[in-house]
Design a protein around this nucleic acid. Structure first.
Lengths: 139, 139
DNA sequence: CTTGACCTTAAAGTTAACTTTAAGGTTATG
DNA sequence: CATAACCTTAAAGTTAACTTTAAGGTCAAG
């Protein structure tokens, strides 16, 4: 399987696949006589794992450290679980912060909609500021 | 008030304040005879508003469009409310996605911890992949 | 009058995760 | 056999939001 085909199947641009190779996320694979990369079916799965991990919020750096050393197919279960748990905690924290942000924004909207139509800039500004500040401190 | 003092009060680096000026987020202000920037108290509030808006997920570009044109102190209330509502919807969507991600990660952790200690790489890999895929599609 | 803490500018550097470009070799098709 | 559609590489460009650097002016203290 050449890179173009892998690209079509995985939905990633060829440049992106080569980039992942340069970054050490996928091993440097076989080449044909012409120098073209020849991929095995497994590579597609590795790519899918990378994309999934990215969606879960892992950086490429983190993913590289989680992926098994090229050649050896062996994840350290403990390391993997630990990393996943850390990431869950991070996601959880981010989620909470977003909830606060959302509540804050909604409060600000309510506040603005309640102002008299002709209110001037800095009255509004300070109201908004106060609203946001309360929310971000409290929430 | 010179830039260093404003920086201390606002907690932002001087370079960051100058950067905001270059980006048109705060107006080009008065200069002393020596060429030093002279800030009024109001600038600090503008900076706080910028930071708050950033925390709410607005990009500097968006903030620039929300902030009143320099000199004129007048927000268009409707434009502001519309932008805030759009942002709330975006935050809401992101929050939902994070919930899914979190559930997915937790499911994957449970799955890994349930595997036999000697499971090999690609069995695990595919299980993880399947778990993540289910979650990201379903959730 | 010199030292150090400020201030000024323009321009270049940083980070992540890629993409684009330039320059060239290969393969399939009419 | 020409032409298009592939493939190769290294290097430079992209974006956001800044920071850092270089080179220099200003100001207060001793």
């Amino acid at each position: 399987m050449k890179i173009g085909e892998l690209a079509r199947e995985s939905g990633l641009a060829p440049s992106r696949i080569r980039f992942y190779e340069r970054q050490g996320l996928i091993g440097s694979i076989d080449r044909g006589l012409n120098g073209y990369r020849q991929y095995s079916r497994g590579t597609r799965q590795v790519l899918e794992i990378i994309v999934m991990a990215q969606q879960a919020g892992f950086s490429l750096d983190e993913i590289r450290n989680l992926l098994p050393p090229h050649g050896k197919g062996d994840w350290s279960k403990d390391r993997l679980v630990a990393a996943l748990k850390t990431k869950v905690a991070e996601v959880e924290a981010l989620r909470r912060r977003l909830s606060e942000t959302q509540a804050g924004l909604e409060a600000v909207i309510a506040r603005i909609e309640a102002t008299s139509p002709g209110g001037d800039c800095f009255e509004n500004a300070e109201g908004i500021l106060a609203g946001l500040r309360d929310q971000t401190k409290t929430g």
